[in-house]
């Protein structure tokens, strides 16, 4: 399985990281945002043709601004729109800006509110069928 290394970085470095990886032959694989009660960060994944990946963890906050990498990798545009719509992170300089209409959820920034876990009785796990 892949070694799981998430290089820490800050948001001002993202464009430079993207350009450096592009020069090394990586392409943009995906990015996503994680928000827990204690922290919030964005993970960028870059992928090479031999299936190796490099990942970066960027701290972020709702209503904070992060420079967009869609100038380097057009493919990033959908992911950035998704994160900005669901988590409220603003990406400056997106190549295509859906303006919050990508999913048009009834409640804006639906994923930005992290609920405390629901207390309920544990599920009885069925025995393994033979």
């Amino acid at each position: 399985m892949d070694p799981q290394v998430f290089f820490p970085a800050v948001k001002t470095e993202v464009v430079e990281i993207a350009q450096r990886n592009k020069a090394l032959g990586y392409r943009f694989a995906q990015m996503h945002c994680v928000k827990t009660p204690s922290e919030m960060f964005i993970i960028y994944t870059f992928e090479k043709q031999d299936l190796s990946i490099e990942q970066y963890r960027i701290p972020a906050e709702t209503d904070g601004a992060v420079p967009s990498v869609s100038g380097v990798f057009l493919a990033a545009v959908l992911y950035e729109n998704e994160i900005s719509e669901l988590y409220g992170v603003e990406f400056t300089g997106m190549a295509i800006d859906f303006g919050g209409t990508l999913y048009e959820t009834a409640k804006p920034r639906a994923f930005a509110e992290v609920a405390a876990p629901v207390k309920k009785t544990p599920v009885k796990q069925a025995a393994v069928a033979e």
Partner: peptide
């Protein structure tokens, strides 16, 4: 393009379903 007709926000259900469910 326009998508979003079938967005169910399934990823948010991690808060309500334990990891086996």
């Amino acid at each position: 393009p326009s998508i979003g007709f079938i967005h169910r926000g399934l990823e948010k259900l991690v808060e309500k379903r334990d990891f086996q469910e």
